[in-house]
Write a protein that binds this DNA or RNA. Structure first.
Lengths: 231, 231
DNA sequence: GTCTATAATACGATAGAC
DNA sequence: GTCTATCGTATTATAGAC
């Protein structure tokens, strides 16, 4: 359960997941396609049942591969999971890191919410993979959250706080504003089954994202951010 | 994977989890205490690792019981899980059902958010149990969501819609307003590990709920609900 | 690189003594 | 009601042929 995510995160998509200090090895074409096939299948399984609940049998079956062949490409179950998490964290954090202190609060926060909701729609399995990892106690990404994510949040919270101090943003705790954005956007991926059943939609029907976008704009932008005072 | 939750939900805490049409049997004191001990232990394990990831070994160990003894009280692993979900749904839905059409929108919605956040704080494991069940595709409570929950949401959405039509609530999709309330409040239970790591808090430190309460009031009440127009 | 075979352990559930 | 013993299967991972 070593937290190796911190090391391999930035280059996870292109280098071998060796975990030790070895130099990255050049990959053959078949390696690239088979590893991709495995990760695609594993994402389905891990995002549904979590690390403990997933089995190599089901991953191999979903990847249309034999189990030993799967383990030819990844040392063990844990390495597949870590590779997926590493790929996810990259997608995850880019939008947050792009919030700019020099921009307009409404545009910056609105753009962030929009991108987060797009990611929720485009990468729902990654969102559920992350949710499962957190629910399990973050055994694989605890270090990452404590160090890199915290650092980034601290940075961005400072920007938001300055906007609050300048009266350009309603008084609120910046970190909790981020939590609210994360939770509302990811909810549509993590709880999509519930959302669809409550709305009476068929599986795979993603039409609710239009309404979601509208709701989040109302919630976070129409009123929260002060464009003018009226009293 | 039969969805029996619908039947046993209302009386789950006091009657035998027989599942069939048998009349509820009177329980002995030792039955009551041992079943409670099992459910308490199972809640720890299921809420962390989900149904598939949990094992009877760890539940028995946490309950300080032998595995066969555990299975003397519950027919199998699934019955323990269903009993927990049944208990949870009761806690879950009461606040929603209490939203009153005759009340004041600010007080009704504000009260609902407050109660949901209290539940998130008081029953974080139940919240994570629910999250795990949804992430896994809601195999045990799909029917419940499709029928009873949907019905209740439809009812309450109508009330909210009337407030929107009367100009007492900002124009928004009532169902998505509920989703936003659910996601933000439950986030503090489901993602508590991440929240604590990002805030630099120790495990078990729940102090962030005060800030959370403030944030949600700002987000949902201070501006969202129209108390007056200024243009 | 891919396969069959299999080792070694984990897991859900039952049998039967007490 | 609780225990030890155990059955049958599932699961992770490896060995070794091809």
């Amino acid at each position: 359960m070593s937290d190796k995510i911190n090391d391999l995160m930035p280059t996870a998509a292109h280098t071998a997941v060796s975990g030790d200090g070895m130099p990255p090895k050049q990959k053959t074409r078949i390696q690239i396609t088979n590893e991709a096939k495995i990760l695609e299948a594993a994402l389905d399984v891990f995002s549904q049942d979590g690390f403990r609940g997933a089995t190599l049998d089901r991953i191999a079956s979903a990847a249309d591969m034999s189990k030993p062949n799967l383990l030819y490409y990844f040392k063990n179950k844990e390495m597949i999971h870590i590779a997926l998490l590493a790929g996810l964290l990259d997608i995850w954090l880019t939008p947050l890191s792009e919030i700019s202190a020099t921009g307009d609060p409404t545009l910056e926060i609105g753009g962030y919410i929009k991108r987060k909701l797009e990611i929720s729609r485009e990468y729902p399995r990654e969102s559920r993979l992350f949710a499962n990892e957190i629910l399990a106690g973050a055994p694989h990404i605890g270090d990452f959250l404590r160090t890199k994510l915290k650092k980034l949040v601290d940075e961005k919270a400072e920007i938001l706080q300055r906007w609050v101090d300048n009266g350009r943003l309603a008084p609120c705790d910046p970190r909790h504003l981020l939590f609210a954005i994360w939770s509302t956007t990811q909810h549509y991926a993590d709880f999509s089954v519930q959302v669809r059943l409550v709305l009476g939609l068929e599986a795979e029907d993603n039409s609710y994202y239009e309404e979601a976008s509208q709701m989040l704009e109302t919630l976070f932008l129409s009123q929260l951010i002060k464009t003018h005072d009226c009293d």
